[in-house]
């Protein structure tokens, strides 16, 4: 049996680990809440853009607009969003697994592949691959809607698509369904798709300034930007929520370990006392004889 001293120091070290994981759990919880709030706050923007498109689609064939037009896919751009830091459970491996599947699928179908990675973990993974061309790697993104990185990703995606260098843009991120359920998903950003909003009444007499094409362009750009931003926020919320869960498990495990170690330590202590008593009484016996 291990000595009491050794057990004591192990308990101490597990306790300090538990303190750290507990703190990380709390930090992740508060960050998750913030990200969730931002997701909610950005919803009206996307909704409004979609409603505007609906109104405009009554006057013009939206699907003829370059950003909406489907063309045969020969190359596509994947934007993959993972995290900068680890210790978030299966967060990164889920995302990268889905990404690898997509790459494999493209290989089979003979689609050329390019990638923009977001997050250090994604960059590290993508850098090791041979069958994709890396067009950009972003790290440490702020979750502000006006962050330069976000603008840069959006502009790059739009530019590549408009110039015909890629025929589709997909974004791979983790969908935040609830704080206990997150799923790695892939969404198509370009060509832009939109569901006509049936709640809007028909309004024939609308003045469009300067003209419909310019407006359509502007709204479509905004919709794409909003989609990328929302994917980022969802990914962020998912990351924190998975980290929170991972840290909660770690804290629970540490507590269990401490219980076991404490029990072992008490047993060892008791054993030592019992042995000492036995020795003393043995000694007394020997003297009195």
């Amino acid at each position: 049996m291990a000595s009491t001293q050794a057990l004591k120091s192990r308990i101490r070290s597990v306790k300090s680990t538990r303190q750290i994981t507990k703190a990380m759990q709390l930090v992740a919880a508060s960050k998750m809440r913030r990200a969730q709030e931002s997701t909610l706050a950005s919803t009206p923007y996307a909704t409004a853009a979609r409603q505007l498109l609906t109104t405009m689609s009554r006057r013009t064939n939206v699907r003829q607009h370059p950003l909406f037009k489907h063309r045969p896919i020969a190359t596509r751009l994947l934007i993959v969003i993972a995290s900068d830091k680890g210790l978030a459970g299966a967060y990164n491996s889920n995302i990268l697994k889905l990404y690898a599947q997509q790459l494999h699928g493209d290989d089979v179908e003979g689609i050329k592949n390019t990638t923009i990675s977001v997050g250090r973990r994604a960059a590290q993974f993508v850098a090791r691959l041979k069958d994709t061309e890396v067009l950009g790697a972003y790290e440490e993104l702020s979750d502000q809607s006006d962050s330069r990185e976000l603008q840069a990703i959006k502009d790059q995606a739009l530019e590549l698509y408009s110039s015909g260098q890629v025929d589709a843009v997909d974004i791979i991120y983790t969908d935040f369904i609830s704080s206990i359920n997150q799923q790695a998903v892939i969404r198509r950003i370009l060509p832009a798709g939109f569901e006509p909003d049936s709640t809007i009444s028909d309004n024939e007499d609308v003045l469009y300034e300067p003209d419909l094409t310019t407006l359509l362009d502007s709204v479509a750009h905004r919709l794409v930007g909003a989609q990328i931003y929302q994917a980022l926020l969802d990914a962020r919320a998912s990351e924190h929520s998975m980290r929170m869960l991972a840290m909660k498990n770690a804290t629970d495990n540490a507590s269990d370990l401490i219980d076991d170690l404490t029990l072992a330590m008490n047993k060892a202590r008791q054993a030592a006392i019992t042995q000492e008593l036995a020795e003393i009484s043995g000694g007394v016996e020997a003297i009195s004889e």
């Binding site: 405009m56 309004n203 007499d205 609308v206 003045l207 469009y208 300034e209 300067p210 310019t214």
Partner: peptide, 19 residues
């Protein structure tokens, strides 16, 4: 501020979409 200059909008304005 719009792409065609500054506009002022009052109630009962005509339907308008602008940049």
């Amino acid at each position: 501020p719009t792409s065609t200059g500054e506009i002022a909008v009052f109630p009962d304005h005509q339907n308008l979409v602008t940049v």
